[in-house]
Nucleic acid binder design. Structure first.
Length: 632
RNA sequence: GGUCCGCUAGCUCAGUUGGAUAGAGCAACUGCCUUCUAAGCAGUAGGUCUCAGGUUCGAAUCCUGAGCGGAUCACCA
């Protein structure tokens, strides 16, 4: 409608007002709540150009539009705002159009370019935690949004399966896991422990032991015993020890931290882990076997977690496969002068002209760093999918700088797709007690949390739910859908780029702005529709009043919301829209009879609206990765 | 210190081409189940949109500066 009005203003404006109309003057917005009208035209730009009072200009435009545009039945002028009132048939036509479109809001599949969405880049030494949940739900929802918006989507993850962290778990398991009577060490099979939990347990063991050893080293150093200490460490220690003199508070703590770091590298157990990494890179059979076995346990554990989360991937990338990929690209870039080499052999890129720093892209010993690997992986992906147009990286905002540099390097290497790549940067999840810290044991485990929210949903649903007709299995699914729905919505409703607070009590709440609130409304509408039975709707006899129009307006905004949420990589926009729609419907539902309405045309219109609101709620929830139960 | 991000009600958050009286939820208080699912609805109370300037018909929104909080600036990933 706005498009039509704009065209008329552009074509007739000169005749009506006597001057050429600049398209930028034409600014529409939905008419404010509580004011009569459907769409508002800003008249200030016109008034300014005409040198006339806004009210007078508004009156002039309004009169012409009313007489020449069929669907505008009236207009009203308030201050500098010109509010148009649309005809009722316009709204009933709109409702019918929505009703007839089963995939309302969803763009034609594959009508847009192919995008790859990367989310969940777990390390294989620890179980998943709350931070991963935000990452994964967010990435999955963005993938779904892109799909709904017409893109072909490849969901992927990079698994950080190599490096010192996994060697730590391996070493600790090898040293500390008790030998059982049959000669085996602890495994998921013989202990019943989930694979990722088992490996994580030994990672913690490693860290504990490391801390003990660090303490010993520090004690030795403080008493002047430097046996077993490398010459370079001794030198640095003396330097730092000198620097301590006269320092207090923060400055002192910073130096003490550095000394601690130094001591870490002088511990036997860390050196053993480093040796193990070297052996792994040398494909030492025993090490490699242990590595693949323990990673296998972790993958089995992750699979269970992912399944409960309801997410999946189309393609997996393993760092152990990709960590060397970037080296050729770096050597190639070096030859072309994009990079430069220092005397020690390390390769760098100078980004100071772009306002950034110099960045290492290859170590002096020729091994790959994080950046090398990411360069290689990105290029590999465009080889794997020749029609790919961009990659979305769902990674925490602590890596903003890394991705800025990565995209810049890819651009300098001459890849035109680099400018299409996007870092979906999300904020950290804080707890009421502050930041999650693994060292302090304040990390919220993903499996534990999911169990908790589903338990809470189970209790509440058994108490209040309409579940008498459901089988045992259906109930189980329902509890799962409500608990997980609440958790997902809780994490998705907040603007992704913002840091957010995770309040455990609120996360299991089922009232207010929550997932279950929306699910409940959807289920209630379905109950209503079941009672209504099959109905014949006489489209020409629909009766639409102001309350109905309000709901149709919100419904009609759905496609636009999908588009915006997809373009902005923000499931939060969709989540908030669904909440608005739910609130609007509930308010209507409480004050207007639907099945009990005696006016046939009105009853039909209300049923039609209810049905289509349920349809939109379900479509939207599924995009967010949330189930929409038929009854609850 | 350089760079980037954030700051809106007691708490958690919406507020995206600058637009009318800044909105929700939670917590507090008051009502509404003998009509379609009360996980709901209606209402009361709660605001110097961190601060100071600027741009203009109009600023929570754009610009500049300051304050507070966070991230980042590794031959870690």
């Amino acid at each position: 409608m706005e498009v039509a009005l704009k065209e008329i203003l552009l074509s007739k404006g000169k005749v009506w007002l006597g001057i050429d109309i600049d398209p930028s003057w034409i600014q529409f917005q939905p008419t404010r709540k509580g004011v009569r009208g459907d769409v508002t035209l800003m008249v200030f730009p016109f008034a300014k150009a005409l040198q006339l009072p806004p009210a007078q200009v508004a009156e002039l435009i309004g009169k012409h539009v009313k007489s020449e545009v069929s669907f505008v039945t009236d207009f009203e002028v308030i201050q500098g705002f010109l509010n148009f009132v649309f005809s009722e048939t316009l709204w009933s036509d709109q409702l019918i159009a929505i009703h007839q479109n089963d995939s309302f809001g969803i763009a034609d599949p594959d009508s847009k370019q192919m995008v790859m969405v990367e989310y969940a880049s777990p390390n294989t030494n620890k179980p998943l935690h709350l931070g991963h949940l935000r990452n994964i739900f967010l990435g999955y929802a963005v993938a779904q949004l892109k799909k709904a918006h017409g893109h072909q989507v490849i969901k992927t993850q990079v698994i950080n399966d190599r490096g010192i962290h996994i060697c730590k778990s391996m070493l600790a398991w090898h040293r500390f896991a008790p030998l059982q009577s049959n000669g085996e060490r602890e495994t998921p099979a013989n202990s019943g422990l989930k694979g990722d939990k088992l490996v994580g347990k030994y990672y913690v063991e490693f860290e504990k032991y490391l801390q003990l050893e660090v303490k010993e080293v520090l004690t030795r150093w403080n008493t002047g015993d430097f046996s077993n200490t490398s010459a370079s460490a001794l030198e640095k220690f003396q330097e730092l020890d000198q620097a301590l003199v006269g320092k207090e508070g923060k400055a002192e703590a910073a130096i003490l931290d550095k000394i601690k770091e130094l001591a870490k590298n002088e511990t036997e157990i860390l050196r053993a882990a480093q040796d193990m990494l070297v052996r792994w890179e040398g494909r030492d059979p025993e090490t490699y076997l242990m590595w693949s076995a323990m990673n296998g346990w972790v993958y089995e554990g992750f699979a269970v977690t992912y399944q409960r989360m309801g997410v999946d991937f189309d393609k997996l990338y393993y760092e152990s496969d990709t960590f060397l990929l970037g080296k050729d690209q770096v050597m190639d870039g070096l030859a072309r002068g994009v990079f430069y080499q220092k005397p020690d052999g390390s390769v760098w890129i100078d980004l100071t002209p772009d306002g950034l720093d110099e960045k290492l892209v290859l170590r002096s010993d020729g091994t790959a760093v994080y950046m090398t690997q990411d360069i290689g992986t990105a290029i590999e992906r465009f080889h794997d999918y020749p029609s790919l147009s961009s990659i979305v990286y769902t990674v925490g905002n602590e890596q903003d700088y890394h991705f800025k540099v990565l995209f810049l390097i890819l651009d300098k290497l001459g890849y035109s797709w680099a400018k299409n790549c996007f870092h979906l940067s999300y904020g950290m999840v804080d707890l009421p007690s502050g930041k999650m810290k693994s060292r302090e044991g304040t990390v919220v485990d993903a499996d534990d949390l999911m169990e908790e929210v589903v338990n809470a949903a189970t209790v509440m649903t058994q108490e209040r739910g309409q579940i008498a007709e459901l089988t045992e299995g259906e109930r189980h699914n329902l509890f799962e859908s409500i608990g997980m729905g609440g958790l997902k919505y809780y994490l998705l409703k907040v603007d992704p780029k913002k840091r957010m607070l995770f309040n455990p009590e609120e996360s299991i709440d089922l009232t207010g702005n929550t997932g279950p609130f929306i699910q409940y409304t959807h289920a209630r509408i379905n109950s209503l529709l079941r009672k209504a039975g099959p109905i014949q709707i006489d489209e020409s006899a629909l009766v639409i009043e102001s309350g109905e129009i309000e709901l149709i307006k919100v419904l009609a905004a759905f496609p636009q919301t999908i588009a915006e949420a997809a373009d902005n990589y923000s499931p939060a926009l969709l989540a908030n829209y669904l909440y608005e729609l739910t609130k609007a419907y509930n308010s209507f539902y409480q004050q207007s009879p639907i099945l009990n309405e005696t006016n046939e045309g009105l009853r039909a219109a209300r049923i039609l609206i209810s049905r289509n609101i349920a349809k939109v709620l379900k479509t939207g929830l599924i995009i967010l990765g949330i189930n929409a139960p038929e009854r609850m």
